[in-house]
Design a protein around this nucleic acid. Structure first.
Length: 245
RNA sequence: GGCGGCAAUGCUC
């Protein structure tokens, strides 16, 4: 069982999920017992290629075989429902986790926030952060970055600024991903100036921009037809060790 | 005891 579980867990990517499913058939044929983890890893493999229907089916099989879902299973399940835009189910799973006596972790809430974010549900995503605090769990950079990214994607820059303050009050420093999300927000609302300001701040803080950062900055410029800034950024990008792809 | 899970842009279909 363990050998198979490890093999299944290594199956990610476009081809991986098929290999993983083959392993499951193999286990059944040879009478190798499955486990919660077998199915959870299989769900993950399916999610990596957005096969949400298959992931749901595997969750069903897990239950049919009489296994108890663990935290990770529920994380994957929330991921599924996020992709299906079924945020009500995401919130419900948080309740189920509690009801089952499982101990939620930061990641539990992070996954829930991302799932709500996929559904553009700002209210629910924000509520998840409150639930985290109620549970006495410490937020992480990812927690705040996921929320900030949602606000930014929807152009709610005032809200994202409040979150950034809140984050720092909790002693969490934004990283390159957080800043990239904020730059994306500036892009959404056509604020090239703001995007460049954040970029400047990153340099001050010695926060190394990534390829995504540059792509996002260029997007901000192109959405406002600011070709002069775009050219400057392109040059900067070449000077740094970032190569366009 | 070990193993499996989280966040940012665009492109593609």
């Amino acid at each position: 069982t363990e050998t198979y579980n490890v093999a299944v867990s290594l199956c990610a990517g476009p081809k991986g999920y098929k290999a993983a499913l083959k392993l499951l058939d193999d286990m059944k044929e040879r009478g190798v017992p499955r486990s919660t983890q077998t199915y959870t890893s299989l769900m993950k493999a399916c999610l990596s290629v957005e096969k949400t229907d298959l992931a749901l089916k595997l969750f069903g099989e897990l239950l049919d075989e009489g296994f108890r879902p663990d935290l990770l299973t529920y994380h994957n399940l929330m991921d599924v429902y996020g992709r299906l835009r079924e945020w009500q189910n995401v919130m419900q799973i948080l309740d189920i986790i509690k009801a089952e006596g499982l101990q939620p972790e930061v990641r539990t809430y992070n996954v829930a926030i991302v799932a709500c974010a996929r559904c553009d549900r700002i209210v629910e995503a924000t509520h998840v952060l409150e639930l985290l605090f109620e549970a006495g769990v410490e937020p992480s950079v990812s927690t705040y970055t996921s929320l900030v990214a949602l606000f930014c994607r929807l152009g709610q820059m005032a809200g994202s600024a409040l979150l950034l303050d809140d984050m720092q009050r909790h002693g969490i420093q934004p990283n390159v991903i957080t800043y990239s999300a904020l730059i994306n927000g500036c892009a959404q609302v056509g604020d090239v100036r703001g995007a460049l300001d954040i970029f400047a701040k990153m340099q001050e803080l010695k926060c190394k921009p990534s390829l995504v950062t540059y792509n996002t900055l260029l997007k901000a410029c192109s959405m406002s037809s600011d070709w002069a800034s775009a050219m400057l950024l392109w040059r900067q990008m070449e000077l740094s060790s970032c190569r366009p792809d």
